[in-house]
Simulated scan of single mutants.
Amino acid sequence: MSKGPADAPQKYLRTKEAAPILGLCARTLEKHRTYGTGPKYRKIGGRVLYDIDDLRAWIDLGARTSTSDTNATDIPPAKPHAARAPAYAGKSR
């Protein structure tokens, strides 16, 4: 018997479900979305959905091997000035 949708693992999460995975509160994740500093998301109708793989990729952006690691990407804070700051201009997510 094949697995139906009810048995399938959940791939897309709402903001309140995604935030704890990232160690953030839902409001902080909403701010990241507003300022363009957070993980990729999808908007389906009025719903915001996060792919689990995109959450993992965003977390991996901050991976470091030491405090002097120059190859790591900085994940900016969820603040409006961070998204407009020259230091973050052109950084890919």
Rank of each mutant, 00 (worst) to 15 (best):
K79E: 12
S66V: 07
R47M: 10
A8L: 14
T70Y: 06
L61C: 10
V48A: 05
L24K: 08
T15Q: 10
T34C: 06
R14Y: 10
A72V: 06
K79Q: 11
Y50R: 00
R64L: 03
Q10V: 15
D54P: 03
N71F: 04
M1L: 09
K31R: 15
R33T: 14
G23M: 02
Y35S: 05
T34E: 14
I21W: 05
R56L: 10
P20F: 06
G23P: 01
D53G: 03
W58H: 04
P76R: 09
Y12S: 11
T28L: 06
A6P: 00
I52G: 03
G62F: 02
G36T: 07
G62Q: 11
S2P: 11
P76L: 12
G36C: 05
G38P: 03
D69G: 08
K3M: 14
P80F: 07
Y50G: 02
P77N: 12
M1P: 08
A89V: 05
W58D: 09
R84C: 07
R27G: 08
L55M: 01
A63I: 04
L49R: 05
R93H: 14
R14M: 13
A19Q: 13
D69S: 09
G62W: 02
A19H: 13
A82T: 08
I75V: 13
R42I: 12
D74W: 10
A57F: 01
D7E: 15
V48P: 02
D74A: 13
Y88G: 02
K79D: 09
K31V: 06
D51H: 06
T28Q: 10
G23L: 01
T70W: 05
K43N: 12
T73Y: 00
K16W: 06
P76T: 13
L13S: 02
G38A: 09
A87H: 07
D60T: 05
R27A: 14
A72K: 00
D74C: 11
N71H: 08
K91D: 07
G4V: 02
D51F: 02
E30M: 06
G62K: 11
A18R: 03
A57L: 03
W58R: 01
P9E: 12
P76W: 11
E30A: 09
A72H: 03
W58L: 05
K3I: 10
R14S: 14
I52E: 07
K11A: 13
I75L: 08
L29Y: 04
L29P: 02
R47L: 13
M1H: 12
Y88D: 09
D54A: 08
P77I: 11
L13I: 03
Y88K: 05
K11I: 11
P39S: 12
V48Y: 01
R47D: 12
K91T: 13
G4S: 08
R64A: 11
D69C: 13
K79F: 04
Y12F: 15
I75G: 02
